[in-house]
Nucleic acid binder design. Structure first.
Lengths: 327, 327
DNA sequence: TTGAAAGCGCTAACAG
DNA sequence: CTGTTAGCGCTTTCAA
């Protein structure tokens, strides 16, 4: 099963390889006769050009890599979905890598820029130091983390999301609102949600209570911690959860503990993936514009590739998905 | 920002490019002195080999493509997760493509075999005809569909899953069990679940009732159909759903219609992704061995690539996740 | 309007 | 143990 090359086509058509290449790429002057000869040879031999050879010559692979903590997380899989669809529109293919929140994995994927010569990388997992990122050269866009001065970031409006969420809980009558935050030691925009939560509570003379449960912990660990929370002496009638999974976990545990939802306890999540909205329609949440984030990410990355100027930060609007009015 | 090539390294080290190549690939006899010279030059210049050139020469990209309907579906995202992790162990990278159950998209991705010269393709979306698949040459493994004589398939034991599920519902006391099936016109192993359902009901002198809701329909459409089901005159106290999403939708609609779960209605799903198990612990389901399916898929594909012999069909065992015993 | 030839970066005969 | 050389398939000057 020998591969057909451009040379075979040239021989078949009785022309030079240059001519074949020109016809295929529509470059320069080509007579109709030449074009026809080449095209029929292509057809006859069922020839498809070798993209690798092309990539090799052009120094361009038309491949983009996406690094996420785990692709089987509703937010990231929905993001990946839209990113892939958008890239396909521009004739790019998408590599996906799971970092498992491990900096070694992350580093290996970033190596792809050098080794596999991907044209760009989208980083949705951030476990390396800024200095390490600074060394890397290539086209990188980051999602929800400012990893270096040189790397543009796409984020949703976390502060506003946190504000809306907290205000909604207050509006619904909550007196003791706790907030589940991710890792506070990390300079992630997601921490702006917590900042907003604090600000709103302060404005309302309410006491804040922040519980830190890093996103990178295992689901089992998260569940364990939440269970402990319910058996602690902490009193609460409102929870601003770190994301929708967390929110649903809390709903489950509350139910197990004979809370009446939502009357005894209001819970609001964050992300608003279509999966979670379909699956848990009673979930109140802050909806990130995931499709738009994906499109913006791709747009910025392609600009970077073309050498065009881009902004440092793109902040996209969130919106509230309120608790469904009971019927 | 000129890329460093092997030639630069050779010059820096004062040796030939061959020697550099040999050191880098650890091929043939190399003196310690040579190795040291090369390695320090590599370090000094911060050289990383160009994988594209390598791929070009070796006719091997160490890339695999995975085609799924949509990556933001818990089953496929979990499958993709494990496939990616497993491939990484063998130094392969993973492309992911969403077919949206559209045969044109599917065809385009399969073109990657020819164009981007991926070393293999894993097909989890099946919308082209068998004859079209038969034409394709290259290393392909299929998940849950026998798409052609030449293409090995990895599946879970659908018949057994269907049997266990139906028997469990009967054991729980259901008298009228309906089954939500996917597209019956398609020769998918998933239809074996339905076959098992029918067989079990027949064995128990019970009447079967199969409702067809193709997997490829939008979630909105599915919800609409399910709602209609609840407002029809069909009577049922047990449902064997097509997958866990469907099962949860049914649970939601049943709740809205004031069913008491699980006393009034027993529902069992299919898939058992860890996401769904964490999110909806009260969900009874047939658990597919997703991680094992992923590993088997990779194993078979790598064998294919190496030219080794593989079986036609790999059927992996499922297991029941029973309804949690109430406390 | 077309062709010859060089070269992208790397590896693998083949010599020495 | 190391170097010279050819060539993977394609595109692009450069010449004709």
């Amino acid at each position: 099963m020998e591969r057909i090359t451009i040379k075979n086509v040239a021989e078949e058509a009785g022309v030079s390889v240059t001519s074949v290449s020109r016809v295929l790429n529509n470059r320069g002057y080509i007579s109709d006769e030449l074009r026809n000869k080449v095209m029929s040879a292509v057809k006859k031999l069922n020839y498809t050009p070798n993209e690798i050879a092309r990539s090799f010559f052009k120094n361009e692979t038309r491949s983009i890599a996406l690094i996420v903590p785990t692709i089987n997380n509703p937010f990231f899989s929905e993001l990946a979905f839209y990113i892939e669809r958008e890239l396909a529109n521009f004739n790019y293919h998408l590599f996906v890598g799971n970092s498992l929140n491990n900096s070694m994995n992350e580093k290996e994927y970033l190596q792809m820029l050098d080794e596999k010569r991907v044209d760009g990388i989208i980083v949705g997992s951030h476990n390396m130091g800024i200095d390490e990122y600074d060394k890397i050269q290539g086209n990188i866009v980051s999602i929800e983390r400012r990893i270096s001065e040189k790397i543009p970031m796409i984020e949703s409006d976390n502060y506003r999301g946190g504000k809306i969420a907290t205000e909604e809980l207050i509006k619904l009558g909550c007196k003791n609102i706790i907030c589940i935050s991710g890792n506070k030691n990390v300079d992630a925009p997601a921490n702006n949600r917590v900042a907003a939560y604090s600000d709103v509570l302060k404005d309302n003379n309410m006491e804040e209570f922040i519980i830190e449960i890093p996103f990178s912990e295992s689901e089992e660990e998260k569940l364990y911690r939440l269970n402990k929370l319910f058996h602690s002496n902490i009193n609460f009638d409102g929870v601003f959860a770190g994301d929708d999974l967390m929110a649903k976990y809390i709903m489950n545990i509350a139910n197990e503990n004979n809370f009446n939802l939502p009357s005894d306890l209001k819970i609001i999540g964050f992300d608003g993936t279509s999966l979670m909205q379909n699956l848990v329609p009673e979930l109140m949440t802050i909806v990130q514009p995931i499709e738009r984030m994906a499109k913006t990410t791709v747009e910025v990355l392609l600009k970077l590739i073309k050498g065009e100027k881009v902004k440092d930060v793109y902040t996209l609007p969130v919106k509230l998905k309120a608790i469904p009015t009971s019927k």
